[in-house]
Write a protein that binds this DNA or RNA. Structure first.
Length: 888
RNA sequence: GCGGACGUGGCGGAACCGGUAGACGCAACAGACUUAAAAUCUGUCGAGGGUAACCUCGUGGGGGUUCAAGUCCCCCCGUCCGCACCA
């Protein structure tokens, strides 16, 4: 029996699939459609093992759904704009386009080696002008529809990458790519009105439109959108004449706790508040205070440590309900980006206000009495009271609960025309301008006469200039000698191109739609996009829970608004897969990180492969280049083949959890492949000798047939529920049963010259095979096996299918059906408990009634021993599960 | 601080609606084959006790509900993730 050779077999089938165009798809209205998509890769250089896991999962779904009769779309492309290309240009002088397209060529080849069922005819890169021209069109349409605008605002500035970042791209106060602390700058930027859809983006999380999404992702988005209801109101100044010009009306604040208005003891405004800026013009100390706040940093640690600090202005406001006067402070803990950038301080019932009031010796009047406390004696004990209770010391609110008082206070303020109940959102509009070269140019022209003017459709695409200077940081487009100089399309005068490019998250916000439909003259053909969308199954990393997934949801709504799509939600079902992790290795002496392949791991120690010096085994972590705990997919494919890598990536760990890459794991997968091949190659041509449509007489309920159908039912159910590890366990079980069967065949099924021991005599064939029925069962089993493994290890499956004599390609073969009659057992084994402890087991007919089961249980020898001398009080029979006898 | 998820053998993990805990794989050990090794095949494999049949304990800890709890409820411990001066 020849050993399976993936190095020959895998390329052979890849070529056959390509030749047969097995995975190319059109909008076939006669079939139900299924769109499966994995988050497309950034062409960073080479495929890593995490990609293998991600795409193997999508491939299982794609191949399975195709076998189930769906018209499957499974495309692939490249998220190709971005900083690394520009960094490479700075470091090596290689042009970003050259670097990117070179990487794409390498990675495409690697993906093809994995044997993915992808429609390569639809491939594109987001840096292709044929793609981004439509992105520019979409932007112009959004602009016209009021979904894009330009304004000057405080932005997150990444000093290392020298570009603006969206709020979503600032992690712990640091740039998501560079890790540098983000600074605040005032710049004119393009924004997309994602806040227009805040309500609907939030509502869809709960109303069933995203029932196919994991709860944790929905929760993260919900928190991110951050809806809170409250009161926005004005505190008029005590002396309006003292206020600077333009600010005489007072201070506009937002609060979620208007019930505590009587507990107010100060007003605080943000250092970034316009009033602060105005006051600072004439107050040097205040200007210094503001500057200090700006430099304090916004990182998690900085905030944690930052003391509540304030600057007392000369202004005072009144109070809406009594004649109190409240001092106005500029306070470092008030954010301009939320609410109105101003608050009223209620120290008794808010931790921050309490800290602040304590420090500046302000009054702390309590207005919420905890349930059960005595108003006469209760005091705050060194900390504010945040919980529920009854309002007191509050005039018309006295005696109300917190929630009733909130409603009453809002009503009163609305009557007084000082404010109104409002909804505040944490979500801000999406700033999309980036000061970079390697991105999609924003199609706008600045004209001194006409202002900002859209680039006319006929002039699209605005393409990047090929020549650019990457030798110094900053935006190469801005310092390009000629590119930005164009005439104004409106007045014909001198104009300047917008030199910012789009945030690359725009590129990935609609690529799934372009995969579905690729007309030349518009972003998508609506009818075709309607056929394919939404994506039925989207698969990717949890790290995109907010950024990409929220932007794509917004973009889909925006594209619907301007008439390109009919759906709100782009992804009907989302699966977030875990990472691939690996142990880390460090030279014990030098502390240098080592590649796994340069380390020899023995029982309890590890050493260097080159000089034998000791190696410290570190934590099991996400694979990263810096820690060198990476394994190359090519190396694996070289040794064991793509199938083994795919199989291992899907076995053992549940798909949503992290999986640890181990050498023994791949070896296990390799072993499995050979075991399957052994079973199959012992029966060449068997499918040509039998008619699987017709059950052979007498072959109705053998153990093998039951195992076959149990495997079909189990694997089907497991794939449907994304339990690939369990599907694989069932295939092992099935194979174990299949292997236990004695070799049945005495001939070669008409195929000569096969020299297996299985064919050579009757000695190893003692059992029932006289009428050939069991050969039929074996044929059925091997046919099912080939098809069940096809989504996971497609190359081996094709080789098996061909060897067995199946028709055509297994990737075109229908998914096997489980026969319910074979899933039902005639006899079942039931455990019998006495007082909740398992004491014996009985075998009864599956259809036995409770009484018969009870009798069988009570007459079991082991059970009898345990109830001897006791009285049976009760017998609980749970049909087909268990019997419990209560006795004492 | 707020919100969420999770905790099962040496390891990855199974266990559906509460119903025989540990499927399947890895590692380990023993045996067969081999001059030998690898590969392959067979067997053992939660802990303790017993020659054995079998018994006791066991799903992070403590309590509860139930004929029956890994699963449900309460309290605690631990790990991981998200958000974070959001008024």
């Amino acid at each position: 029996m020849s050993r399976y050779n993936p190095k020959e077999v895998e390329p052979k089938w890849q070529q056959r699939w390509t030749d047969a165009r097995s995975f190319e798809t059109g909008a076939d209205k006669d079939k139900p459609k299924y769109y499966v998509l994995e988050m497309f890769p950034y062409p960073s250089g080479r495929i890593h093992i995490g990609h293998v896991r991600n795409y193997a999962m999508g491939d299982v779904i794609a191949r399975y759904k195709k076998a189930c009769g769906y018209n499957v779309l499974h495309p692939m492309g490249w998220d190709a704009f971005g900083m690394p290309a520009e960094n490479a240009a700075m470091q090596t002088g290689s042009h970003p386009a050259k670097w990117t397209y070179g990487n794409i060529d390498i990675m495409r080849g690697q993906l093809k080696q994995m044997g993915l069922a992808i429609d390569w005819a639809r491939e594109f890169a987001t840096c292709d002008p044929e793609y981004y021209v439509h992105q520019q069109r979409l932007f112009l349409e959004f602009w016209e529809a009021g979904l894009a605008y330009r304004k000057e605002s405080l932005v997150n500035w990444d000093p290392v990458d020298q570009t603006v970042l969206a709020n979503e791209q600032v992690i712990d106060g640091k740039g998501w790519r560079s890790g540098a602390p983000v600074e605040r700058r005032k710049l004119s930027q393009w924004f997309l009105k994602i806040t227009d859809y805040a309500e609907d983006l939030l509502a869809a999380l709960d109303d069933g439109r995203l029932s196919g999404w994991p709860d944790n992702v929905k929760l993260m988005q919900k928190n991110w959108i951050g809806k809170s209801k409250g009161l926005q109101m004005r505190f008029p100044f005590a002396d309006a004449a003292a206020a600077p010009k333009g600010f005489e009306d007072g201070v506009e604040i937002f609060t979620t706790r208007p019930d505590t208005l009587f507990g107010a003891s100060f007003i605080a405004i943000s250092p970034d508040h316009p009033l602060t800026a105005k006051l600072a013009e004439t107050d040097k100390d205040l200007a210094a205070f503001v500057a200090e706040c700006a430099s304090a940093g916004t990182s998690e640690e900085a905030i944690e440590k930052a003391e509540k600090r304030g600057y007392k202005t000369a202004l005072e406001t009144g109070h809406p309900f009594d004649d109190r006067k409240l001092p106005v402070y500029v306070a470092n803990f008030v954010l301009m980006g939320y609410g109105t950038g101003a608050i009223f301080g209620c120290p008794a019932h808010d931790q921050r206000d309490y800290d602040f009031a304590t420090k500046y010796d302000l009054a702390i009047p309590p207005v919420v009495l905890p349930d059960g406390a005595d108003a006469a004696t209760w005091t705050l004990e060194g900390e504010p009271y945040i919980g529920p209770g009854e309002i007191f010391n509050s005039d018309f609110l006295n005696g109300l609960s917190v929630s009733d008082a909130i409603a009453a206070a809002i009503k009163k303020i609305e009557q007084m025309e000082l404010g109104e109940g409002v909804t505040q959102w944490r979500l801000r509009d999406w700033g999309v301008s980036r000061q970079r070269y390697w991105g999609c140019p924003i199609p706008a022209i600045h004209c001194d006469t006409c202002g900002i003017v859209p680039v006319p459709q006929k002039d699209l695409p605005v393409v990047l200039p090929e020549e650019a200077d990457f030798s110094v940081p900053g935006n190469p487009l801005d310092r390009h000698p000629t590119w930005k100089h164009v005439d104004c399309p409106k007045c014909g005068g001198k104009g300047r191109r917008e030199t910012d490019t789009f945030d690359t998250f725009i590129d990935s916000s609609w690529y799934f739609a372009r995969f579905a439909s690729q007309p030349e003259d518009k972003p998508v053909d609506k009818e075709v996009a309607d056929y394919w969308l939404p994506v039925d199954q989207y698969i990717g990393g949890i790290e995109h829970a907010i950024l990409h997934l929220l932007y794509a949801r917004f973009f889909t709504r925006a594209m619907k608004k301007v008439g390109h799509l009919s759906v709100d939600e782009p992804f009907a079902n989302l699966f977030t897969q875990g990472m691939v992790v690996h142990a880390t290795f460090k030279d014990a002496e030098t502390g240098e990180w080592l590649l796994p392949e340069d380390v020899i791991v023995e029982k309890d120690a590890a050493k260097r492969a080159d000089n034998g010096k000791p190696v410290k085994i570190g934590a099991i972590e996400k694979m990263s280049k810096s820690k060198k705990n990476v394994v190359s997919p090519e190396g694996i494919a070289e040794t064991y083949g793509a199938d083994a890598a795919r199989w291992f990536m899907l076995s053992d760990s549940p798909p949503e959890r992290d999986v640890e890459w181990t050498d023994s794991g791949v070896e296990g997968a390799w072993k499995l492949i050979n075991r399957i091949w052994d079973a199959v190659s012992a029966a060449p041509g068997i499918l040509k000798t039998v008619d699987l449509e017709k059950t052979a007489a007498g072959d109705d309920k053998t153990e093998l047939r039951q195992a076959t159908h149990a495997a079909i039912a189990g694997v089907t159910d497991d794939i449907d529920h994304f339990r690939f590890n369990k599907a694989i366990a069932r295939i092992y079980e099935f194979l174990n049963t299949l292997k236990k069967e004695p070799p049945l065949m005495t001939g070669g099924y008409g195929m000569a010259a096969h020299s297996s021991a299985a064919y050579s005599g009757t000695a190893i064939n003692p059992q029932p095979n006289k009428n050939g029925n069991s050969e039929w069962a074996r044929a059925e089993a091997l046919s099912a096996l080939s098809r069940l493994i096809a989504p996971f290890i497609p190359h081996l499956a094709e080789e098996c299918w061909e060897t067995l004599g199946g028709d055509g390609l297994v990737c075109d073969a229908p998914w096997p059906n489980a026969d319910p009659a074979l899933l039902a057992k005639d006899e079942i084994v039931l455990g019998v408990q006495v007082n909740g402890k398992r004491r014996g087991e009985i075998t009864v007919p599956a259809e036995a009634d409770n009484k018969a089961v009870e009798e069988a249980a009570l007459s079991d020898e082991a059970v009898k021993r345990h109830i001897d001398g006791k009285t049976v009080r009760k017998v609980v029979v749970v049909p087909k599960r268990i019997v419990n006898i209560v006795a004492n």
